[in-house]
């Protein structure tokens, strides 16, 4: 266990959306700030529903927020 294989651009997207705070994003998608922190730290991979809600807040597609890095690629 440790870091998740699902990576994300949440921090970057927050920055490009008027420096949205973690608290603001958490309220918009209906989770706690700790969950946003865990996702940004790539410790937690969200459910598909939450991933769609986050993408919807930023007005982008799911692939622009989340991407999958297979284990063999992360070791390179």
């Amino acid at each position: 266990m440790g870091t998740s294989l699902v990576k994300n651009n949440i921090r970057k997207l927050r920055f490009h959306h008027d420096e949205m705070t973690q608290e603001q994003l958490a309220k918009k998608v209906g989770v706690t700030r700790q969950t946003i922190i865990a996702m940004e730290g790539e410790k937690y991979a969200p459910s598909l529903e939450l991933a769609f809600r986050i993408a919807r807040v930023f007005g982008v597609s799911l692939e622009e927020v989340f991407y999958y890095t297979p284990e063999d690629e992360t070791e390179l």
Binding site: G30, V31, T32, Q34, T35, A38, Y44, P46, L50
Partner: peptide, 12 residues
């Protein structure tokens, strides 16, 4: 006086 929201999400 705004109440703190003690929400429990999917990670919890």
């Amino acid at each position: 006086s705004e109440e703190e929201q003690f929400i429990s999400d999917e990670r919890d």
